[in-house]
Design a protein around this nucleic acid. Structure first.
Lengths: 183, 183
DNA sequence: CACTTTGTTCAAAAAAACTTGAACAAACGA
DNA sequence: TCGTTTGTTCAAGTTTTTTTGAACAAAGTG
């Protein structure tokens, strides 16, 4: 229980208010999230944490973004899973607090690990399934065509598998810029 | 007008039927499309054309996939815009016919050009907007923080801009495999 | 011109994705 | 133990996206 609370209801505290630039940054991440196929609320949450230097607990996130408990909880969980936020426990505080990961390399790596890699793995299964269906076929025209297409798909799969490690390497390769860094 | 038409209604022609493996491939592309943030029907259309060696006119696409005129029309237009299909006109036929682009490099290039590049461009504008908002601020704590965050975002933007050309280069670099190729 | 074929557009319907909030669980302190 | 705080889950509601199909346009043909 706090010692006193003047105008506790209705008047938003200064602390509950976002700066204009923060709103713009949050909106930027909202848009970025949807273009990566993630829910907008994930973008907002990440954007908010990105703006702050101090960690925030879930209830602050809810208040500042005006989103529901459910969205906040699910969003924070998903972002942590992606490696885009991590949580810390301040000693003597029961609340979990969250901070944004700002190293681009980590962000990209997490995204690829959670989104791209699983798709490539499923791809292996699908290719096998197609192979199996082709196995049921007699030596028809369709069979020959199917085999050819299967080869093409396998080639694509191989190339994509090779590309991803490069992407992970290239991003965040912090080439020169000794100070100022690059994230 | 065709010369004769026995059981024209209700009984689907052999030609209106997809092989099982084709259905599997189409489904693969349906899933791929949605994970790239494209409508499923685009995936189906591309998948069908990918399976076929012969070009198909729009009405065949509609019949084979059982999708509406509107979907077929819009899907084909969008896929052409992405460089994923191209159209040909058989001489003496009024219909436009479509074929899938199967060179992975072209596909990736088109996707990046149409989806990633525009986002990076919008990013420039957004960064400027944030800068402007920071300009309105006095020399507060928030300003310093805002400047720092803006720098981070600029760094990310730069790195992403550098990454894309590499991706375009790497994909389809047809390393070795003198025959069999790789697409 | 009248008629057919081919393809586009867009408002409305359907489907999918996202968000909400109430009910629930877990963990702590008194 | 009971009450409180913190966080999760999920069915229902909301919003957004996608699909449909009827009306329209364009372009040939007889």
């Amino acid at each position: 229980m706090t010692a006193f609370s003047v105008a506790d209801v209705s008047t938003p505290d200064q602390k509950d208010i976002l700066d204009e630039w923060e709103i713009a940054v949050i909106d930027l991440f909202l848009n970025a999230a949807s273009s990566f196929g993630l829910p907008k609320s994930y973008g907002q949450i990440y954007g908010l944490l990105f703006c702050r230097d101090q960690s925030l607990p879930m209830n602050e996130v809810m208040k500042l973004l005006q989103i529901s408990k459910g969205s906040a909880s699910q969003g924070l969980r998903a972002l942590r899973q992606l490696g885009a936020v991590s949580s810390v426990f301040e000693p003597g505080d029961r609340k979990e607090r969250f901070v944004a990961e700002i190293r681009l390399r980590k962000l990209v790596g997490g995204f690829l690990r959670e989104q791209a890699d699983p798709h490539l793995d499923k791809g292996v299964g699908r290719l096998k399934q197609i192979e199996a269906l082709l196995g049921n076929l007699d030596n028809t025209d369709s069979l020959k065509r199917g085999i050819r297409k299967h080869e093409i798909l396998s080639g694509w799969h191989r190339q994509m598998s090779r590309l991803l490690p490069w992407v992970k390497m290239i991003v965040g390769k912090s080439d020169r810029l000794p100070k100022k860094s690059s994230y």
